[in-house]
Every structure is written in C-alpha cells, then in structure tokens.
Write a protein that binds this DNA or RNA. Structure first.
Lengths: 220, 220
DNA sequence: GTCTATATACAGATAGAC
DNA sequence: GTCTATCTGTATATAGAC
C-alpha cells in the first residue's frame, strides 16, 4: 500500500515527569482530525472535539495549548500519512503497464475521501494557514509529481520513452489522469469513481501519453 | 471580455411600497461578497459585513433574512459573473491559433484571484452547501468544458481535427492547460502566472493536443 | 491528569426610536 | 428604511476540586 505508517505519537518531546494518558491523546487527535477535515477549523468547536474523543475539554487543553496547536498537530499528522512512495519500475513490466499502475495508484490516493477532504481544507485555509497549504502541496501533489517524474526518467533510461521535459510531462500525465473525476470529487458531485470506469479512462490516458512520448515515434 | 454582465440587482421581486436603498443593498452585497470569498461564511461576521458596507447591522437584516440568505445571494451573484462564453471559431484562424486563444482565455479566467477564491470556497462548502458547489461547477468548470467541446466540434466539422470522444478530449485539453499552475494557485504558492510562461506552456499544450487529434495523423 | 463549573468575548438576530 | 442598544446562545479558555 502507499499509505505510510502513521505517527500519532508526539516526537518524544515528553518531559520526564509527565507521561499523561497516551491513549487519550491519540483519541483526541483522531477525533479532532475527523472533525477538522469534515468541518474545517472554524466549524469545529473544542467542545465537539472533547465530546467526540470521550474526554473533558480541560483534558484537551492539557494536551494541546490551544485550538490552533491542536489543528496543526492534526493536519500535520494526516499529511504525514499521505506520502506517495516513489516506486522503481519492475523489470518485467513494460511502459504501458507501469504507467497504468502508477496512474491507478495515484488516482486511488486522490479519490480517497480523507484525501479529498484534506485537499479542500488545504486550499480553503491557504490564506490563513499558508504553511499548512504548502506542507500539503509538497507531501501530496508535488510528491506525486516527483514519483511520476522518477518513473518517467527510469523509462527514458530504459529506452521506452523520449521526454524532453520531465516535469512538464509528469504534470501532464497526472492532470490527464484526473479527467473529469477530480473536480467532481472536489465539489462533491460524486462520492467515488467506479473501478471499471477509472480503469478504462486510465488506459486511454496512458495510450495518449505514449503517443506523445513513446520511443520510436517522431521526435518533437 | 468573458465576464458577462453583473446582476447585483434582485430579480424585480421588489414589492410596491418598499423601494429601500438600492445603493445600500449593492454596498452590502459587494462588501459581503469580498468577505465571504476571502474568509468563508464561518469566518465572516454580520458585524464585519455591516462595517465594511458602511451600514448598520439592522440594515443588513432589513435586506437579507439571515446570514445564509446573504451568503447565497453573494455567491450566486458572483457565479453569474463567471460565465465562460462559447465562441464560434473565427473563419480566418486555424486550429492551433484557435485552440491557443481558447486555452489562454480560460486560463485567464481560472487565474483570476476572485475565481481562485470562488473555486476554493465551492469545494470547501461542498458538504454544507451542495447546491452552491453544484452551481459553481456547472457555471465554471463544466461551462468551460462545454465551450471547449463546442470549439472542438466545430474544428472537427472543418476537418482540422479528428476526435472520437469530444467530452474526453475537452477535459483533456483543459486539464493539460492547468499544468502545474492551477494547483499552485489553489494552494497560494503563487499569486499569478507570468504571461510569457503561460503562453509558452499553452503553446506546448496545443502542440501536444494536435499531435493527438490533428487531422492527417494516424487514426486511433 | 482529569473532571465540573465558570469567566469572558463575540456571534447571530431582534427591539424600539426616528 | 435606518440607526443604536440589547437579548441570547455559544465559542475559547481557565479555575479549582479530586
């Protein structure tokens, strides 16, 4: 899978004499993450977080200095979960199959409800939380682009593709893969994309991409 | 230009003996629209609207039943401004030039700060205001797709393109035109796209699109 | 560390004078 | 129709008991 391990634990900042309840901290983070993703920071009250986590409000404030700190901890934890791993091309697969699997893998990520919510949230809060938007962009779309570019580079090295501009081609492949689905998901017009429709779409996208960059074609 | 005429006036629902102050209503709508777009409905207080419009809060409530009604009026007014007009292909221009101008026109719209804000807002509110998200999608992205598809259809009729699936190709052109810029705008990583970079990008996009669909190429 | 109870601020919405 | 002053709920954050 491509969801890297979670990190609900704080990075060992725990002071000597303050073990606190790790379970409650985790419960707060999980409850708050869901609420923040669904309703945004302004649509989420600390009362609601406490109630959803099954603890008192004061306990929430005992673990997190204020709402802002809790929000940042939640979002950064979520973002860390969304890493898109780069993947070396399997030696026994050719470019069409490798590109299809790459595209499918990243569309599965993009279509995940949590990621859809995170995408919306990062954009909506770009004005008030620029660092969070930048963090998400780097861990999400930009990481995806890097993984795509790495795969393309390997396929160029194997002589299966000819690509004058790797970054341009990587964005191009990703954007083509979006099709009409990405926006429809963003605006809540569909809940998910049927597997067979997605596969058919991505097959066509890969075919088009290979027409542009497949080795043996006319140079650009 | 492609911004259709505004419609800050209510659709003649004015009852006989209640002229009210049209200027104040317009001022409220304008101030509220800016605030809503920048800070979202939850980040915008009626006090702030009243202050920004230079009227009292009660005057705001005199013109709009409540915050929800004001929000909807603002957003629907804004959306009505964003229409993307379909455009018949000029007889004296060929496909490359027509497609470039179309792409440029729609990227200018997409990159407009107001439209960026509207896009973010519609996605963020998809859960709580599904009708607004759908309205924006239809007037924005979907209308753009329709305009692109219409242009493509005309160019097919003129024998300059061969396109098996108009809808797929229209989304493809639009998504390719986005490049890396659309997301960077959405997440506030750039304020605007330099004219020359955008032009160079779109020239390449059109060239790629024509390699896929230009008449005289191999059929798919 | 965790709870109940509370201080303080500000939100949406309304009352009543002009 | 528009204003100032006000009601009422709920938000963040804290105090103090156990």
């Amino acid at each position: 899978m491509f969801f890297l391990g979670a990190m609900t634990q704080p990075p060992t900042t725990a002071k000597p004499g303050r073990p606190k309840s790790t379970e409650k901290r985790a419960a707060i983070l999980e409850a708050a993450s869901t609420l923040f993703l669904d309703n945004g920071p302004q649509g989420t009250s600390m009362d609601a977080v406490a109630k959803a986590a099954g603890v008192s409000k004061q306990t929430v404030y005992s673990h997190f200095e204020n709402k802002e700190a809790l929000f940042r901890a939640c979002i950064q934890g979520k973002i860390a979960d969304y890493g898109f791993a780069e993947d070396a091309p399997a030696a026994d697969s050719d470019a069409p199959e490798l590109l299809f699997r790459l595209a499918r893998r990243f569309m599965d990520l993009i279509c995940d409800p949590d990621v859809v919510a995170m995408h919306r949230l990062a954009a909506a809060e770009a004005g008030t939380h620029p660092r969070i938007a930048a963090l998400y962009f780097d861990a999400g779309p930009a990481a995806t682009k890097r993984a795509v570019a790495a795969m393309l580079k390997a396929l160029v090295a194997r002589g299966e593709l000819r690509i004058p501009d790797l970054d341009y081609a990587a964005w191009q492949l990703a954007n083509m893969a979006f099709g009409e689905f990405h926006m429809q998901l963003q605006f809540g017009l569909i809940e998910q994309v049927p597997d067979d429709r997605l596969d058919a779409h991505l097959r066509q996208v890969v075919a088009d991409f290979l027409r542009l960059y497949g080795a043996g074609r006319a140079t650009r």
